[in-house]
Each structure stands twice: as structure tokens, then as C-alpha cells.
């Protein structure tokens, strides 16, 4: 009878049996190889598909998000839509916890470009809110990394939409 209770207690720590150790070790090695392979593939993709001379990457982050609950965002590059994202509650929470979303990655020619981001969501007092933010940039040899930041503006209790370039050197 005693074993009944003890088994209930010790199920809290189902200990790994010793004879499975080598197998688990091999398994980890294989998983590590897969991770390394994926990482190398990612780096090669970066170099071949999105070289710095043409790379444009856009990220999105949210600061607090009290005055704006994001529903979707649309990206327009030189008057052509290049990407859109519809947020789930879980994704919105992730952004509120400080995560940065990689929103878009593509290639552009050297020269002047115009990026427009259209934010749709709920603004203060749960009202429908739609706001576009425009950003002009010049593409040269370095990759252009832009972060769309949604911030709370306490001065007038309104959301603020900023495009912040990352320094990539």
C-alpha cells in the first residue's frame, strides 16, 4: 500500500533510466547537427538571397500598447503592397511583452525609396484606429533595417508610430 502513495509522490520526478543515456546523447547530437545545418542555411540564404547591397528588412515592436491594440499592419514599398500581417491575441501579447517581430525581408535597388506602413487596430476608448506612417530612405551598399515602433504618447494619450532605422555596422 505504501508503494501506492510513494509512486504518486515520486511521479513528480520521473527519473530518466540510466540505460537510455547513450541513446539520448546520440539524439541530442543529431538535434544539434540539425540546428547547425539550419543556422548555416540561414546564413547562406542571407548572403545569397538578401545581400546587404540590396537587403531591406522591416521589424515591428510595441511599447506598452495601452493606447493602441494592433489588429493588422500593411507594408507598401514605392506604392506597391509588399506585405501584411494580421495579429492573434497571442501574437499581440508577445509584442506587449517586448518581442520584436520580423515583418518583412526583401531586396531593393540602390537609390531613393519610400516605405509606408498602415496600422489598423483599436485606439484610445476602444475606437477603430487606422494610421499610416511614411518613411523615405536611400539604399546604398549597407543593408537597411527598419523598426516600426508603436509607442504610447502620454502627453495626449494617443499612440505614436515611429520608423526607427537600425545601425548595422
Amino acid at each position: 500500500m505504501r508503494t501506492l502513495i510513494l509512486s504518486g509522490l515520486l511521479c513528480l520526478s520521473a527519473l530518466a533510466s540510466a540505460d537510455t543515456a547513450p541513446v539520448s546523447s546520440q539524439l541530442e547530437q543529431l538535434k544539434q547537427q540539425v540546428i547547425q545545418l539550419n543556422r548555416e542555411l540561414f546564413l547562406l540564404e542571407e548572403e545569397l538571397l538578401f545581400p546587404p547591397e540590396t537587403q531591406l528588412a522591416v521589424f515591428l515592436s510595441l511599447d506598452s500598447g495601452q493606447f493602441f491594440q494592433i489588429d493588422s499592419v500593411e507594408l507598401i514599398l514605392n506604392d506597391k503592397p509588399v506585405g501584411a500581417f494580421l495579429y492573434t491575441t497571442q501574437q499581440r501579447e508577445a509584442l506587449q511583452r517586448g518581442a520584436i517581430q520580423p515583418l518583412y525581408k526583401g531586396n531593393v535597388k540602390a537609390g531613393e525609396h519610400n516605405l509606408t506602413a498602415v496600422f489598423v487596430g483599436k485606439g484610445p476608448d476602444n475606437r477603430d484606429y487606422r494610421r499610416a506612417v511614411n518613411y523615405r530612405f536611400a539604399k546604398a551598399d549597407d543593408a537597411v533595417l527598419l523598426e516600426l515602433q508603436v509607442k504610447d504618447r502620454s502627453s495626449d494619450y494617443q499612440p505614436d508610430f515611429i520608423v526607427q532605422p537600425w545601425s548595422n555596422d
Binding site: 539550419n38 497571442q90 501579447e93 508577445a94 511583452r97 517586448g98 517581430q101 520580423p102
Partner: peptide
């Protein structure tokens, strides 16, 4: 910091391998 926060995004998307990457 940016990489860290991107990893957090992948983690919240339940993609631990991408987060690790």
C-alpha cells in the same frame, strides 16, 4: 538586444528552434 527580442517573438510563436537560431 534586437536579436534577443526576435528570439522572444519566435518563442512566443512556439518555434523554439527559430528562437535559438
Amino acid at each position: 538586444e534586437k536579436h534577443y527580442r526576435q528570439a522572444a517573438w519566435a518563442f512566443y510563436q512556439q518555434q523554439p528552434a527559430q528562437a535559438l537560431e
